[in-house]
């Protein structure tokens, strides 16, 4: 009988513990990737507290449902992620463990960029022999600045719903951001004119939205299939492709392994470069404006040397 008292005690403990955890002043934003945390800061300002599950040197697809993520998600008011299966390995566990009713698919606290922006590369055929394909399309959506604005707009709507007392602040911050962003966008669109049609090689399909926006032409990826590391055979074939027609650059993310792209660069003479990819990708990239500024600057420099 003693053990039943133990259980009863446990239940009492459980009931007692959730009582003091009800009201909080700030809106807590749980961002799966750094770009969304940065966007939340642009719109939320001092009214939000942001947390990023991954940093620029991590591949967001491969992290684990670490204990710290469970604790953060348990207390979050707004979840912002890329979606489309990018977080498929760890987000479902966090949902289960954290048991946070605010972050359910039908609630304003659940914001997935992939649900908002037009998706690229939706596969017609699904088969694992094609590598780690995402049925919903390519999840690396933030590298088209037009998508950033779409998510910003939706995020503002959600923040206003979650925290009506600060609705005006969110709206004005959004308008401010949107104006600045559109100015930058017209500047960037001038910049990319020289890059249109230029051929590039990338490590993984992480750059599809960037390529699509600029109008670059993707020759091939170093990975033979999404998620499968480069093989010698594939690289040899790629080298032929690169030799046959001029290529501007071999592009990779800060978290990608350098070996394959450095090998191809050495053999072909095509420069291999690391583009920041997200906030913190290089030390200078502290916000979304700088992310695009610096990425375009790096590409332009190479383009100028080439000509």
């Amino acid at each position: 009988m003693l053990r039943f008292f133990h259980i009863a005690w446990l239940l009492v403990l459980v009931i007692l513990l959730f009582l003091p955890s009800t009201s909080f002043a700030e809106i807590r934003v749980f961002a799966c990737e750094p770009e969304w945390a940065s966007l939340a800061k642009e719109i939320g300002g001092s009214k939000v507290e942001t947390f990023t599950a991954t940093h620029a040197r991590q591949d967001p697809h491969y992290i684990r449902a670490r204990p710290s993520l469970i604790a953060k998600m348990r207390k979050a008011d707004l979840l912002v992620c890329s979606g489309a299966g990018l977080e498929a390995g760890w987000l479902p566990i966090l949902f289960q463990k954290a048991g946070n009713a605010k972050l359910q698919p039908d609630k304003p606290g659940y914001l997935f960029a992939a649900d908002i922006v037009p998706m690229l590369e939706k596969p017609i055929l699904l088969d694992r022999s094609m590598g780690d394909v995402h049925p919903e399309g390519n999840p690396h959506v933030h590298l088209n600045p037009n998508n950033v604005l779409l998510v910003a707009k939706e995020m503002t709507k959600r923040l206003k719903l979650l925290d009506p007392s600060n609705a005006e602040s969110y709206q004005s911050q959004f308008e401010n951001f949107s104006k600045k962003w559109q100015n930058a966008l017209s500047r960037w669109e001038q910049q990319v004119l020289n890059l249109k049609g230029k051929r590039i090689v990338t490590h993984h399909m992480s750059w599809s939205y960037f390529i699509d926006w600029i109008g670059l032409s993707l020759v091939n990826t170093l990975e033979p299939k999404p998620g499968i590391p480069a093989t010698t055979n594939h690289l040899e074939a790629l080298l032929q492709q690169v030799r046959n027609a001029p290529v501007l650059a071999i592009i990779r993310t800060p978290y990608a392994q350098d070996k394959a792209s450095e090998w191809l660069s050495e053999k072909s003479g095509v420069p291999a470069i690391v583009l920041p990819y997200t906030i913190g990708g290089t030390n200078e990239v502290t916000d979304l404006f700088k992310l695009f500024d610096l990425s375009l600057q790096l590409l332009e420099e190479i383009n100028n040397v080439k000509r």
Partner: peptide
């Protein structure tokens, strides 16, 4: 089994079962 993640910044979970 019942499990409860505490509302702390450090991850803390307690639980028990029958």
């Amino acid at each position: 089994e019942v499990s409860y993640v505490l509302p702390t910044d450090l991850y803390a979970e307690i639980g028990g079962g029958l």
